[in-house]
Structures are given as C-alpha cells and as structure tokens.
Amino acid sequence: MLELNNLHARVVPEDGPSREILKGLSLSVPAGEVHAIMGPNGSGKSTLSYVLTGKHGYDVTSGSATFDGEDLLSLEPEVRAAKGLFLSFQYPLEIAGVPVMTFVRAAMNAQRKARGEPEVSAPEFLKLSKLAATRLRIDSDMLKRPLNVGFSGGEKKRLEIYQMLMLQPRFMILDETDSGLDIDALKVVAEGVNALRGAGHGMLVITHYQRLLDYIKPDRVHILSAGRIVKSGGPDLALELEKSGYDQFLKVD
C-alpha cells in the first residue's frame, strides 16, 4: 500500500542551511497492516511524516514514495489527504475562530468533492460526529470551540483521533500520538485508532516509547536511526528495545 524506496530528504529552513535528514529510507507497509517506527530523537521520525504528507520546507532529493502504486511526492498535500492519507500531528495547530465541527465538515466535504462524491448531509454529519465523540469521550461543547485553542495536550491528541474517525482515512500516520496522554486517555485514543484497523487500511505508528504499542499492536516494528531503517522485526523488537535501549542497534550503522 505504502512503498518507500531509498528515500533521501532534506529539511530546508527559511533561515540557515538545509540538512539531509532521511538518508536512504526504504519501507513497505502492505494494506491491512500496522507498522511501528521507533527511533531516538533526531533520527528522522517527524521528517518522515512531513515528507509523506507534503509539508513545505522539506525537499526529497532522491528515491520514491508511492501510495497504491501512485507517486505520492508529486501531489499537493490536500490531494494526498483526499486519497486517504491522514497525519495525526505531534503538535496539532491552534486555529483561532474556526470551530471544530465547522472545520471537520469543511475538510470532509473538500475531500468528498475531490473524490467526486456528494457532500455529507447535516444529519449524517451530526450522527457521525456524535458516534466519534462518544467513542473518544469528547464533550460535545468542545466540538463547538475553536480548533485546539486553549485545549490541553491530551485534548488535542484526542481531537486528532476524532478527526481521523470522521474522515475515515485509508492510511494513517500517528506521530507521537502518545505524548501528552495519561494512561486512561491513551487507552481511549488507542481504542479509537484500533476501530480504523482492518482490511484495506494501513498505519504507521511513530513513537519513541513502547507504551503505545501495548494498546496499538503493530504487525511490524522498524528502528529508524540517522535517517535509515537499521532493523526490522516483529512486535517483540519493541519489547527488546524497551529493555535494552537503542544503542545496540545504532552501532549497526
């Protein structure tokens, strides 16, 4: 479903020199699978999520990324989104003056329009929203407030998953979704995420710690170091990491 082949990418800051962050990353996530990417700070985890979703300021210098066989890198971010790519942000942005539900409905309809589907009706939207909010234990008042403005870290993360449930993406990238969540919130969020697992859906769970993977069980675990996958394995690899740290794998490079 998602195929990355020898991907090299640079971050290009507005001020200062560009730096190569991804240095030949190859990865294949088949439909229906959940893959975890673990790695120390600075290994390129967030850069990977931004390169895949098309954020400005990141240059792919070589290699390829395809989604269902289609070149992903030439598409605008909104086109990638309409094709079913969703990023749960590590730091969700605050959008003053735009209520959550207004925003999500606009996003939903923009995606539907891009896919040539009819707009969501108001009753249908409300029904979906209520379901998602109940599942994530989100207060309906929160959905009327401006997006992420004044929300706690945990509320923001919960709201990312709410958006995910509403938009029903086919491929999800969770960037450090566990940060800022206490254990109860983590369970609720994981439950929401797991509801989207299944045939036809793929997922990349980027995390620093094993903790999240207790609740979102990965099919494969990859260790990212200095911009490359240095080791891949089954779920046990995450446990091994937790026990003995990254160092043993970093020396491989």
């Binding site: 979703t53 990638r80 989104a81 959008i95 003056g97 938009l167």
Partner: peptide
Amino acid sequence: FYLRQRGIPDTEARAMITRAF
C-alpha cells in the same frame, strides 16, 4: 499546512484562516 493535510485546498485554507482572524 494543517488544514491542507485535512483535505482543504490551499486557497480555501488561507481564506478560512484569514476569515476567522
């Protein structure tokens, strides 16, 4: 970028943020 990642085209995303502002 956050709005575009959710599927809202660039021009509309800018208008939405500016309008709310």
